[in-house]
């Protein structure tokens, strides 16, 4: 069984279902990427895994434990961390305070984790006394990822981490995400930049209308002519 699996998830926000029998899984220390056209339910699938959406059918299992009925907060305590697409930092607080708030649930010494994050994102160390809202788009994403990593999660979930950042910053963010995965943290990510994201993905999920269309390794999906034609622009 994979480290995390959202199995046969069916559900939506109101009466109509958005997800139909959708399955998403990540192995330990691997990167899984969800891609698909607009309105395919990518972010919804992510929210379902994190418990922000009531499932009508299906279940979510983390590290062998069924967590389907847990609230998002309880899932954070179980080792999941989530970086929302927008409003993912405390803009009026300093970078360092953002990281401190990320570690709010921890009662032990957080300085080592903070050091690791400054090591991963060196620019944050220089800006640690600055209000996070004054930073550039790419730096804000680094703060957002850093905040999520402060809980020392086993699974990091990113909702379009490269939305609105320049291509150079995007490449760098992807490099950092690979680095995080190498430390043994599983990563589940929704991405608009499908090609680049699949290049770093161990596993890729192509969703269409809330259902799995293609599921394979990132490499195989990139090589698949049908996927290329329909979703990667040739």
């Amino acid at each position: 069984m994979p480290f995390l699996i959202g199995e046969a998830m069916t559900g939506g926000y109101g009466a109509a279902d958005i997800l139909h029998d959708c399955t998403i899984a990540v192995e330990k220390g691997e990167i899984a990427v969800i891609v698909g056209p607009n309105g395919a339910g990518k972010s919804t699938a992510m929210k379902a895994v994190f418990g922000m959406l009531k499932l009508r059918k299906g279940r979510v299992v983390l590290d062998g434990t069924d967590i389907t009925d847990l609230s998002p907060q309880d899932r954070v305590a179980k080792g999941m961390a989530f970086v929302p697409q927008t409003q993912n930092i405390f803009t009026s607080m300093t970078v360092e305070e953002n990281l401190e708030m990320g570690a709010f649930l921890r009662r032990d010494d957080i300085r080592t984790t903070m050091e690791q994050i400054y090591h991963l994102f060196p620019i944050l160390r220089d800006k640690r006394r600055q209000a996070a809202g004054e930073l550039s788009g790419g730096q804000r994403q680094q703060v957002a990822v850093g905040r999520a990593l402060m809980t020392q999660p086993k699974l990091l979930m990113l909702d379009e981490p490269t939305a609105g950042v320049s291509p150079i910053v995007m490449d760098e963010l992807f490099d950092r995400i690979i680095e995080v995965a190498r430390t043994g943290i599983s990563i589940l990510m929704v991405e608009q930049n499908a090609r680049q994201a699949l290049e770093i993905a161990d596993k890729g999920y192509v969703l269409v209308q809330g259902a799995n269309r293609y599921t394979d390794t990132g490499e195989a999906l990139l090589a698949n002519p049908e996927v290329r034609k329909s979703f990667l622009g040739g």
């Binding site: 998002p72 907060q73 954070v76 305590a77 989530f82 929302p84 409003q87 993912n88 930092i89 405390f90 803009t91 009026s92 607080m93 305070e97 401190e100 708030m101 990320g102 709010f104 649930l105 905040r147 809980t151």
Partner: peptide
């Protein structure tokens, strides 16, 4: 203080504060 900062965090971004376990 930790409590004071958590208040500011809650005032700044309620959803993210909940995600952080506040």
């Amino acid at each position: 203080t930790r409590s004071g900062k958590s208040m500011r965090a809650f005032s700044d971004n309620e959803d993210l504060a909940l995600l952080s376990g506040i």
